[in-house]
Write a protein that binds this DNA or RNA. Sequence first.
RNA 1: GCUCCCGUAGCUCAGCUGGAUAGAGCAUCGGACUUCUAAUCCGACGGUCGUAGGUUCGAAUCCUACCGGGGGCGCCA
Length: 534
Amino acid sequence: MISELLSSAVAGALRSLGVDDVPAGVTMERPANPDHGDWSTNAALVCQKIVGKNPRQFGQELLDALQADTPQYVVKMEIAGPGFVNFFLDNSYLQSILKQVVDAGQDGFGQLNIGEGKRVNVEFVSANPTGPIHAGGGRWGAYGDSLARIMTRCGYETHREYYINDRGVQTQIFGQSLTARKTGEEIPENGYAGQYIVDWAAEMPDDVDPIEWGIERSLEDARETLESMQVHFDTWSSEKALVEAGLMEQTMVDLRESGYVYDEDEATWLRTSDFGDDQDRVLIKSDGEPTYFLPDIAYHRDKYDRGDLLIDVLGADHHGYVPRMRAALQILGYKPEQYEAVIGQNVKLMRDGAEVKLSKRTGTMIEIRELVDEVGPDVARLAYLLQSVDTPQTIDIDVLKANAAENPVFYVQYANARIHSLNRTAMERELTRVPLGEVDVSVLNDERELAVLKELSRFDEVVAAACANRAPHQVTTWARELARVFHGFYHHNKILAEDVDPAVAQARWWLAEATGVGLAVALDLLGVRAPERM
RNA sequence: GCUCCCGUAGCUCAGCUGGAUAGAGCAUCGGACUUCUAAUCCGACGGUCGUAGGUUCGAAUCCUACCGGGGGCGCCA
């Protein structure tokens, strides 16, 4: 990578000036302002105290040292501002990107090895199987799935998991509600009153266990809806199966052995406060029933069979749950860094200008299904991935419907469709493409051509950052940016027109091809389709 | 009371683990289709980065306090 090449040149120059260890704050970054070059280092600013010189003066010495052995591709270096050393690259650097992207292709572009095969288990959505998933849960589906795709791209071995709370009080009330609707009785107190219960009860055969049938019905709905948004899971883990297999009891035994379990007020407690939780937690209630916490510990432990690092994607309303789980896992001997929770801000759902609160009592909700049916899976999915998961998100279904055509997903998809259209036209005209190895890419010197290449050259960094920050939306931002510079290029730089120099046409054609690779990979990471025509 | 997240253009949001003159989209206004898809492009308008301090060569970014919005603090799940 060019930044590494420049960094090591700077390190070498610093050494020749008596700074043997490069201070931590020294960076090599892309200046926002093109007047400041392609890359810039703050080395002289950071080193000013060490060397006891003012940064402009030391910067000049650094510059002289660098000029003794100018790094590859660098055509100009200068000292600027308070003491930055700026590097200007020859266009041949960006031009060389073209071949790299095309050679890498969709399989290899942005394929990194940060993860080094480390196994990561990502759990997300995990909504109670007592009804359809509401549109708020869609955010975690889109997020979790894309995070997994990005981590896979970065060389992690990822496993996507959905936890099914298929035992306990909620499932019983759910089953009773179904039965009540089927027989025409009143639903129980605190029962589920949504319209879907009525619909599902009508589907339910007579000779089935309403709980089991209802859970299966819920899961079927969840699977179908999530798959329609290209959200995929490798494992659907049943709490019930886990308990029946004795994992919960075994976990209880092992927790007792740890010495952090005690009995008080007829209940059994875990001393999580020794590990950063603000209070101890009950494992077994005074009525002898386990809390939700205990089987969940067993479940997390079980997940370590499918990953060395666990990532739970949780809504902000479950935030308080994290310290106790981290504590429990530490008590069982896992390292704190083996458990990670991504806390996403909850989605606010709106319809008819008012907030729709998910209410089991009245049964009001907006289902993911409704959203997907109304705006299509791509618009829905990208809507979730437009923003940081830290940002509270409002999904106003009316606004989204009305503005579906303005959704950025079409902007990106359209760029891709234009590239395919270009190829179709070329085929119709029976134009032949010269192999890239024989094409003179040095003709690509137009501002817009270089802008496209520059975006493509950033992709590895973007993917790496999106992975490290657990931030799929950074890929969204990049995809929009690539589409933007491509549209500008496409509009102003004709490719197949007759008055274009054939050598230039070939180079531009390959540039479009490379852009297509970038768009396809980015859209795939986002779980959005890349249609060939629109 | 304790704690987590957010506050950036009229609206929705980016801002890459501290960089130089803070950016997109939408909205508004004005332009560009006999030529590879106008679901596009080009331009204009638009900012005390919630407030006040602090850290430093440098702060939207880090720290503290406060203001405002949302969430969490069960022998619920």
